[in-house]
Design a protein around this nucleic acid. Structure first.
Length: 557
DNA sequence: CGAATTTGACCAGCGC
DNA sequence: GCGCTGGTCAAATTCG
C-alpha cells in the first residue's frame, strides 16, 4: 500500500467540497474543481446555522440523480433549502426568548425587555428576509447560468456525435467487419465471455480507445470499430480471455501475444510504419498512449485514489533517480500501471506516467486522476487520428469550461510512444486551496481538445480565458521532432465572435468567481456536477464518458 | 504471519 | 552477435 503520499486528490475530505457528490462513482472532469469550500471560522458555522447552508451537493437533497438535461434539479434544491430557512430561524428565536423566571428581576423590566426583544427580532427577521431575497435572486442567476452552460454543453455533445458519425462513415465501415470477425474468433478461442465493460473507455469513439494494451493479448491485431457496440463486445471478449486466465497477476503468460504488452514502445515503433496517417497505425499508437503527470511533491508518489503495488524499480538512463513501477491492485488483473520517477533537473518534481485502463469501478478519488489522465490520453489519441477537417471549432470547447486548471498539457505523438504530459508544477490555481494535510491537489484536466493544425491559436484562446479568470490553457502539439509548443508561445487574442453566448456565460462565471472565491467554487462545482450528470446519463460508461466529450473534437493535423 | 516492498535476475527490442 | 536499455518477475526482505 502506498501511504504518506504528499500529493493528494482530495475529493472526499470533509473540509473540501465533494467533487463528485451527487452521484457516486461519477465524475466531472470537465469542470472538476479541487477546491476547498470549507468555512474555517466558527463565525461561519454560526452563520450557517442561522441562515442555512446552501448545500449544492448534499446527497440528502438529491433523492434521485438528476436526469441528463434536467438542469433545474439542483437549483430547485437550492431554493428549497433556502425556503426552509425561515422556519429554522423562527425556531431559534423562540428559543432565545424563552426567558426563565429567574432572569427577570421585575415585572416591569420583563415587559420592557419583551418589547425590545420583539423589535430586535423583527429587525433581525427583516434582515434575514432581505438576505433570503438576495440569495434567491442569486440562485436564480445561477440557475440561468447553469441552464446556459448545460444547453451549450448539449449542443457541443450533439456536434460531437455528428462528428463521430462522420468519422465513422469515413473509416469505420470496413473495420467493423474485420473487428467483428476477430471478436468472434476470440470468443471461440477463450470462451467468449461478454462482460459488460465497466472500465474507462477513452476516446470519442472506438478508434480512440487509449488502451487495453497492457493486458490485452491481441491488441496488436485489433482494429477498432467506431461503434460502441463493437467496442463493448470486443472488450467483453478480452475480459473473457482475462477472466479465463488462471493467473492472478498480470504476467507474460497472461498475454500469450507478447507483442501487446504494455510499456513497450519499441514494439510500437515496430508496428508503426512511416506513414503516420495510416489508420491502423494510428490506432496502434492510441493503444500505447501514456499520460505523464508532473507535479511537485516531496512524497514518493502522488495520491490518485487507486491502490498500487510496486513491482519493480530501475535506474533509468539519464536520470539519477530510480524509476519505480507500480500496477493497480484495486482489482485482479487490472492492466493499469504507472511509473514514478523524480525529475532529474528538479527533484521536487515527481513525474508519474500512467498507462492502461482500469477494468473496475473507481472510487471518486481515483476517478479524478483517472479521468484526468484518460482525458489527456484521449486528447493525444484524438490528435493522432487522421482527420483533416477539424470540423468542430476548438474554440467552442475551449470556452465551454470555466477557469479552473493551471495544468499545462503537452502532447507528444512522436516516438517512441505518444505521451501527453500534464504539467502541474506551474502556478497554483487560486481555486485550489492548498491545505497543510494535502500539499498538493491535482487539478483536473480542464484542457479541451484543440485543433492541432491550428497551432497556437487554441492556446491563445485558452490563455485569454486564463487572463480573464485564471485559466491556464492547454499546450498541445503533435510534436514531430521539436515542434512542441512552448508554454511561452505567443498567444494571439481571443476571437469573441465564436460562440458568444458561451463566452458570455464564462465571463459571467468569471465575474462571480472574482467576487467571491467560495461562491466561485460552489458555482464551479455545481456546474461541473450538472455537466457530469448530464454526460453520465448519456453514456453508460460512466468512468470515461467525460473524457469523450472533453476530447473528441480534437482533430488531427 | 500475511502483505507489501526491495532488488537482482531475466527477457525482449534495438542499435551498432 | 553483443551491449544497452526498458520492463517485468520472483525470491528475499521488511513491515504492520
Amino acid at each position: 500500500m502506498d501511504k504518506g503520499w504528499g500529493l493528494t486528490l482530495d475529493t472526499s475530505s470533509s473540509q473540501s467540497l465533494p467533487l463528485f457528490p451527487s452521484n457516486d462513482n461519477k465524475m466531472f472532469p470537465l469542470l472538476g474543481f479541487p477546491v476547498n469550500l470549507s468555512r474555517a471560522s466558527k463565525e461561519d458555522d454560526e452563520n450557517r446555522k442561522v441562515v442555512g447552508e446552501v448545500d449544492f451537493f448534499s446527497d440528502r437533497n438529491k433523492p434521485t440523480p438528476p436526469p441528463s438535461h434536467d438542469h433545474n434539479v439542483k437549483p430547485n434544491i437550492v431554493k428549497k433549502e433556502i425556503d426552509e430557512t425561515p422556519l429554522h430561524i423562527n425556531t431559534g428565536l423562540q428559543l432565545l426568548t424563552a426567558n426563565t423566571g429567574s432572569d427577570q428581576s421585575t415585572v416591569d423590566d420583563g415587559v420592557s425587555s419583551d418589547a425590545e426583544n420583539k423589535r430586535a427580532k423583527t429587525t433581525e427577521l427583516a434582515q434575514l428576509q432581505v438576505e433570503l431575497q438576495r440569495m434567491n435572486s442569486e440562485n436564480k442567476k445561477l440557475k440561468e447560468m447553469l441552464s446556459h452552460v448545460t444547453g451549450n454543453y448539449t449542443a457541443l455533445q450533439m456536434h460531437l456525435v455528428t462528428l463521430m458519425q462522420q468519422n465513422q462513415q469515413r473509416t469505420g465501415s470496413t473495420e467493423n467487419e474485420v473487428v467483428q470477425g476477430k471478436v468472434e474468433d476470440k470468443n471461440v478461442g477463450v470462451g467468449g465471455g461478454k462482460v459488460p465493460r465497466q472500465f474507462l473507455d477513452i476516446g470519442p469513439s472506438g478508434t480512440a480507445e487509449v488502451d487495453d494494451q497492457v493486458s490485452d493479448s491481441s491488441s496488436d491485431e485489433r482494429t477498432r470499430s467506431s461503434t460502441p457496440q463493437n467496442h463493448n463486445i470486443e472488450a467483453g471478449a478480452r475480459d473473457g480471455a482475462r477472466n479465463n486466465n488462471g493467473k492472478s497477476q498480470l504476467g507474460r503468460e497472461e498475454s500469450p501475444d507478447s507483442e501487446s504488452q504494455g510499456w513497450s514502445p519499441n514494439k510500437l515503433q515496430k508496428m508503426n510504419p512511416s506513414n503516420p496517417m495510416d489508420q491502423s497505425t494510428a490506432e496502434a499508437t492510441m493503444r500505447k498512449a501514456r499520460v505523464s503527470v508532473r507535479a511537485r511533491s516531496e512524497a514518493p508518489m502522488i495520491s490518485d485514489g487507486c491502490q498500487w503495488r510496486k513491482y519493480g524499480q530501475k535506474m533509468a538512463k539519464g536520470n539519477p533517480c530510480p524509476r519505480a513501477y507500480y500496477r493497480c491492485t484495486m482489482a485482479v488483473g487490472c492492466p493499469v500501471r504507472k511509473q514514478v520517477q523524480r525529475c532529474a533537473d528538479d527533484r521536487t518534481i515527481l513525474v508519474t506516467t500512467y498507462e492502461g485502463t482500469h477494468n473496475h469501478p473507481l472510487p471518486p478519488a481515483a476517478m479524478a486522476m483517472a479521468s484526468t489522465t484518460t482525458a489527456a490520453a484521449s486528447m493525444l489519441l484524438s490528435g493522432s487520428m487522421s482527420s483533416a477537417d477539424g470540423i468542430m471549432n476548438p474554440n467552442l470547447l475551449a470556452r465551454a469550461i470555466l477557469p479552473c486548471s493551471t495544468s499545462m498539457a503537452t502532447l507528444s505523438a512522436s516516438a517512441p510512444f505518444p505521451t501527453v504530459t500534464l504539467d502541474l508544477t506551474h502556478n497554483p490555481n487560486p481555486l485550489q486551496f492548498q491545505r497543510p494535510g494535502a500539499p498538493f491537489q491535482v487539478p483536473f484536466l480542464q484542457a479541451q481538445p484543440q485543433n492541432f493544425g491550428s497551432g497556437a491559436a487554441p492556446i491563445a484562446q485558452a490563455q485569454a480565458l486564463y487572463n480573464q479568470s485564471k485559466f491556464s490553457g492547454l499546450q498541445l502539439s503533435q510534436d514531430v521532432g521539436s515542434s512542441q509548443l512552448a508554454p511561452q508561445a505567443p498567444r494571439p487574442p481571443l476571437q469573441p465572435s465564436q460562440q458568444p453566448s458561451l463566452a458570455d456565460t464564462v465571463s459571467a462565471a468569471a465575474s462571480a468567481i472574482t467576487a467571491d472565491p467560495n461562491f466561485t467554487a460552489v458555482l464551479a462545482a455545481a456546474i461541473s456536477s450538472i455537466i457530469g450528470s448530464a454526460h453520465n446519463s448519456n453514456n453508460n460508461n460512466s468512468n470515461n464518458n467525460t473524457s469523450r466529450t472533453t476530447i473528441s473534437s480534437f482533430s488531427g493535423n
